[in-house]
Simulated assay, not measured.
Amino acid sequence: MSDLVSINYQVLAEKIKTWGKELGFSQIGICDIDLSNHQEALDTWLAKGYHGDMDYMERNTQLRTHPEQLLPGTMRVISARMDYLIPDAKFASTLDDTNKAYISRYALGRDYHKLMRNRLKKLGEKISKHCQSLNYRPFVDSAPVLERPLAEKAGLGWVGKHSLLINNEAGSWFFLGELLVDIPLPVDQPSTNQCGSCVACIKICPTQAIVEPYVVDARRCISYLTIEHRGIIPTEFRSLLGNRIYGCDDCQLVCPWNKFGQITQTDDFKPRNNFDTVELLDLFAWSEQQFLDNTQGSPIRRIGFECWQRNIAIALGNAAYSDQIIDQLSQVRAHCSPMVGEHIDWAIDQQLTKKRQLNQHSRLTARLIRTVEKGLPRDA
């Protein structure tokens, strides 16, 4: 390129980080495109079937470690971080209330994909005005990109034992996006892994999906089961889902670095439809049209109405016994799909089991009271 000599790329890199902040990104980092040391781990993960039904992970595996094949001439990746943690995330109060629906906190508001991609595009436009020639391409989960290894190389954080990126000043409550460019910007220093001997995320996982440090078996992961998986959820995992109907945050909640989590400055990520405190029965009462209307512009919409009903049915089965729950499950059972029906049958059986246990407990309690009363003095 003719501008290689005329442009001060160090100055340009500093401007890019400033522009990124102006566009609403929390942090910008820059790295080269060498991901060759990640190919073996990716191949092993796929060979073990840890990707589950995510067939797209098997396609274009070479592209994942060769960004230059996504945009010919790519020399650098500009990695962007955007915080999404809301001021009062109500983690414990929602998880502890079995009548409420727990939705992963990243999905409470607007879908981040378009929002971040549009801002990355604007960043590319700003950069192009300072170059005689520039090819760029933004990505936000829209192509086979190893975003976490790239972000790690760009100094945005390190990949933790739960496989998510951790930043020592912001925890892990953030989204990532990339802008591929064909100019030789100076690169940032990679982050150093600071997990140490901590295994809190591994121990807390309800389904033991983190099979070894830095390796997640998606087939056991609640986020995969409730979002990516489109079929029947194995019986062995259903009770472990609790009231989590879309994703799971447990491994992040227990991570000590998340005490540094940064509150988002983006209003679009604030909860819609009271998704942070909504009742399961209220959501289960939605028609398909209500689901489509209420999830317009939300990442939740991507799972579709059938999986939405499936997930809520399981959560209702895990809820405390209620005649109202059994009634509503039975009503939906009359006109749902066979796949949803299987989960409703399981949920009804769970509720009836709890009813029997409550009745048995009540009988035992009454018997104990009568026994005690018989032994009391007449004037007691």
Rank of each mutant, 00 (worst) to 15 (best):
V5R: 11
F25H: 01
D34K: 14
G49E: 06
Y50G: 03
N60L: 13
T65A: 12
T74Q: 12
I78V: 14
M82N: 10
Y84S: 02
D96N: 15
D96T: 11
T98L: 12
K100P: 07
A101N: 13
Y106L: 13
D111I: 08
D111M: 10
N118W: 09
N118R: 15
E125T: 12
K126E: 03
S128K: 14
R148C: 11
L150S: 10
E152W: 01
L156E: 07
K161S: 03
K161T: 03
S163R: 15
L176C: 04
E178P: 12
L180I: 03
D182M: 01
T192W: 06
C198A: 10
P206N: 06
Y214P: 03
Y214A: 03
R220E: 04
C221I: 02
I222E: 01
S223W: 00
E228Y: 03
I233G: 01
I233Y: 01
I233N: 00
I245Y: 04
D250R: 08
C251K: 02
Q252T: 09
L253I: 10
L253K: 09
W257K: 03
F260D: 07
G261Q: 11
Q265Y: 14
K270H: 13
P271H: 05
R272W: 06
T277S: 15
E279S: 13
Q290L: 09
F291R: 09
G297I: 08
R302P: 06
I303M: 09
S322Y: 11
I325T: 14
D327H: 12
Q328P: 01
Q331T: 13
V332N: 06
K354I: 03
R356T: 13
S362F: 10
L368H: 09
I369D: 09
R370D: 14
R370T: 12
